[in-house]
């Protein structure tokens, strides 16, 4: 056991949950966390309070680097895995270093999704997932009055509340694809619109962007129905996609996310996945599901770690409603949409 080297890609809730279990269960092993972000493990769902200046960067930190030194966990921050060789069990990092693992846990999370139909406008969009996004968001927000939010997802509705509280005007264009990969019923969408309007946002439904021009004061957005929306920032909130491109060449089974069984084991017996990047088989549902959210991720990280240690833990059934926005409840399992 002493020769085990557990490598965890990611430094979020799932990754840290897993690292704790692995350290506890295998005190002699080497454990390495590799994260693209340079910032230590931080509280992602509080980013909007950072944007509104209610908390500082330091207050976002959940675990400082010293914690990992104490735990004997090697923390590699700001480092990117470029590809994985499953056969040789080597990770190839972007800065041209090889890292050998004996067991690999993928907690690489999600990344803001820009639907391909909006590709043309992607350089005009401001997105929000990590701290670097939040920093940029905050910077752009200074000195502007009006924000256009397009899309519609978990983050966007809460962010809208924050923006309104900050005294910004918010125009919310609910995309037909909102809450992707879920498909909302018209009734649900109307419910959202009503509540957003109630909070003071101007809500546009059944409309789409037909052009964006960058002007001195921000952006002028042309839409199909309304002539022109002037705003200082266009926030794009189309949900997250698992960041798994770097795994494509590995031969690992990937659909939207990394396909794993109930034990979170992927198509390679020594590779596991947990958190937002995993597409989990659930024998009860007879279907795949994807976890969304912090709490689930931590639990899944622990489950994966237990299985990596040789136990037999199951991911269980997803929580029914991960999203509950003032009574509008959305089931977050990806594959229940066709019921």
């Amino acid at each position: 056991m002493a020769s085990e080297h557990y490598v965890i890609i990611g430094n979020g809730a799932a990754a840290n949950g897993a690292a704790d279990i692995l350290r506890e269960g295998d005190p002699e092993s080497r454990i390495t966390l590799i994260s693209r972000e340079f910032f230590p493990f931080y509280n992602r769902h509080r980013l909007r309070f950072f944007i509104s200046d209610e908390v500082s960067e330091d207050e976002l930190v959940v675990r400082p680097p010293a914690h990992y030194r104490e735990q004997g966990v090697r923390l590699r921050l700001g480092q990117e895995v470029q590809r994985v060789d499953l056969k040789e069990k080597i990770l190839y990092l972007k800065h041209m270093e090889k890292v050998h693992y004996t067991r690999l846990l993928l907690c690489c999370g999600g990344w803001p999704r820009i639907p391909e139909v909006h590709y043309t406008y992607r350089q005009h969009f401001t997105v929000l997932k990590g701290l670097s996004h939040a920093r940029a968001f905050r910077e752009k927000l200074a000195g502007i009055k009006r924000v256009l939010m397009v899309g519609g997802d978990l983050i966007s509705v809460k962010m809208t509340d924050t923006l309104l509280r900050m005294g910004k005007e918010v125009v919310f264009m609910v995309d037909r694809d909102s809450f992707w990969p879920l498909t909302l019923t018209d009734e649900m969408r109307a419910g959202f619109a009503e509540r957003l309007t109630g909070h003071g946002a101007e809500v546009l439904v059944d409309d789409e962007i037909t052009g964006i021009v960058e002007v001195k004061s921000g952006y002028e957005v042309m839409t199909r129905r309304k002539e022109k929306i002037s705003c200082g920032l266009v926030g794009a909130f189309f949900g997250l996609v698992p960041k798994v491109e770097f795994l494509y060449s590995s031969g690992l089974d990937i659909d939207r996310g990394i396909l794993v069984d109930d034990h979170l084991r992927s198509s390679d017996p020594d590779v596991y996945a947990a958190g937002d990047c995993a597409q989990i088989w659930n024998p009860e549902l007879n279907n795949y599901w994807v976890s969304i959210g912090w709490e689930n991720a931590g639990i899944l990280g622990e489950v994966a770690a237990r299985n990596m240690l040789g136990e037999s833990a199951t991911a269980g059934t997803p929580k029914d409603r991960a999203l509950d926005y003032e009574g509008v409840k959305v089931n977050t399992s990806w594959w229940q949409i066709y019921d």
Partner: peptide, 14 residues
């Protein structure tokens, strides 16, 4: 694949 998606075609897998 990208052009199809840009034209708003969905790809449904499995």
């Amino acid at each position: 694949v990208l052009e199809a998606k840009r034209e708003n075609i969905r790809i449904e897998s499995l």
